[in-house]
Design a protein around this nucleic acid. Structure first.
Length: 465
DNA sequence: AGGGTCCCTAAGCACGCTTC
DNA sequence: GAAGCGTGCTTAGGGACCCT
């Protein structure tokens, strides 16, 4: 256990609010402060009380001491401080009946602005982070297959971080701050991840180390605390600010169609073809028609191409789509069988059936993907099988993209994101297309198609508006 | 010796968020 | 549909201890 000597009791924002801290508990408080940056909004405040998880209590005070000395004695200062518990970690549950108080925002702002020392502490053998500095990478080497390292333009991230910080700063002057979903999400999913990544990269000589693990289908997932793949896209694009993004446009419909075509030798259903050509407008008109947000609309079509059911699913009454859109809208979609969206739903279902049955005939225990990765099945499950095939084909295309990039530029700064490749140097999209076609026989698209698009009038007619 | 209780930890599940 | 991370809660099971 090591503690920075000059970070004294009373020097940090939390202890300012806690007049009676016992000396022996200061380690615990240090631990709390070090965790504050990432988690503070998930702890419910009531006056000067905050709640922390059971594990954290035990880490702080040891389980025995917590139970025997603190939990059983209501007069103990920490009993009062930590007695509250809350369930769930989303905003609604965390703030139910409470407000995000000035204390909370204040502590966070002060904590960030202080930044006086870069000292690390150890508590109960656990290494933790304090004052923004990472001491140890917590990636489990046994889980990751390998890592790749890429150069990052850190100055731009710094600039963006300052921009991000502005909207939070204005809360400093207010007495109380109302629970604000936007603020909550902004800090939790944008500021904190970006800040964390910024320090991670700057500590590593302006390079980003990405650990990958390969899944059964051949996809590479970035793992660990600093996983770049599950960052919000906006944040990821800030980090990879000077990179070029080569995205397989309408990837799921496009690749599924080619699997279908290779099996049946037939043209794909026209509904799916129209979607590939007019994706953007179709999503906009769909959002308009059912009066939902564009994001919900995107989610709807994405789910359809992953084989989502509209109403019920096997284990829960409501499918993911029903949960997202609400039962009324789903019923509305299902009520008119002549609409484009209904027919698209049916055609995708047919496409899934054809692909699934074709492979089931060969062997109903295993499926060999396009990259020769094999899926072993105990029980045949259509959606899993199609997902495996789709992902294996996707990984073939991504491998091919990487091969093209590294061989033509002799550069290895690239980041894998399933059906999208970020590259440091620019490449020619048309050459990339031909390379992939030659290597894999797959047709890809890297930009929204502009030819053969329907007029709005035709689209409205198609969707029965 | 058997039964009950407490302590402690790990593992598993559920949930909520992100990405594609 | 695939997967990731972080968090909260429950449960299983072993060890230590005490009582009958």
């Amino acid at each position: 256990m090591k503690i920075k000597k000059n970070l004294l009791y009373g020097d940090n924002p939390i202890t300012n609010y806690l007049p009676e801290i016992e000396k022996e508990d200061i380690n615990g408080i240090m631990y709390l402060i070090s965790n504050l940056s990432n988690r503070f909004l998930e702890h419910k405040f009531d006056n000067n009380c905050l709640s922390i998880s059971k594990d954290m209590k035990y880490d702080l005070f040891s389980q025995n001491r917590w139970r025997q000395i603190i939990d059983k004695k209501p007069e103990h200062v920490f009993h009062k401080l930590f007695q509250l518990r809350f369930y769930g970690n989303n905003l609604n549950q965390a703030t139910n009946g409470y407000q995000i108080t000035k204390l909370l925002i204040d502590s966070y702002c002060k904590w960030l602005s202080y930044n006086p020392t870069y000292e690390l502490i150890e508590v109960n053998k656990k290494q933790v982070r304090i004052k923004d500095i990472q001491i140890d990478e917590e990636v489990d080497e046994t889980k990751s297959n390998f890592y790749e390292e890429v150069e990052i333009n850190i100055e731009y991230i710094k600039k963006k971080l300052i921009e991000y910080w502005e909207p939070v700063q204005k809360y400093l002057d207010k007495e109380t701050v109302e629970a604000d979903a936007e603020l909550f999400k902004f800090i939790k999913y944008k500021i904190e991840p970006l800040r964390k990544m910024y320090y991670y990269i700057s500590e590593n000589n302006n390079k980003l180390k990405i650990y990958y693990r390969q899944s059964h289908s051949g996809r590479y997932y970035s793992i660990g605390e600093y996983s770049i793949q599950s960052l919000k896209k906006e944040v990821r694009n800030i980090i990879l600010n000077d990179y070029n993004e080569y995205d397989i446009s309408v990837s799921a419909p496009l690749l599924l169609s080619q699997i279908y075509k290779s099996i049946t030798n037939e043209n794909i259903p026209s509904t799916i073809k129209y979607f590939i050509i007019n994706k953007k407008r179709i999503r906009e008109i769909f959002a308009e028609k059912y009066n939902i947000s564009l994001d919900k609309s995107k989610e709807f079509f994405t789910s359809l191409f992953f084989g989502s059911k509209l109403l019920s699913n096997d284990f829960k009454y409501n499918s993911a789509v029903t949960k997202s859109l609400g039962i009324d809208i789903v019923n509305l979609i299902l009520s008119d069988k002549t609409t484009y969206e209904y027919q698209l739903y049916k055609d995708i279902k047919k496409l899934f059936d054809v692909i699934s049955n074709h492979y089931k005939e060969k062997d109903n225990r295993k499926v060999i993907g396009f990259n020769n990765h094999t899926l072993e099945l105990r029980k045949w499950k259509k959606s899993t099988v199609v997902a495996h095939l789709y992902q294996s084909l996707e990984s073939v295309v991504l491998d091919s993209m990487i091969k093209f990039y590294t061989s033509t530029t002799n550069d290895f700064n690239y980041v894998r994101v399933h059906d999208c490749l970020y590259t440091k140097k620019e490449i020619d999209e048309s050459e990339l297309y031909h390379f992939i076609k030659k290597e894999t026989q797959i047709n890809t698209l890297f930009k929204e198609p502009i030819s053969k698009q329907f007029s709005d009038e035709e689209l409205y007619k198609m969707m029965n508006i």
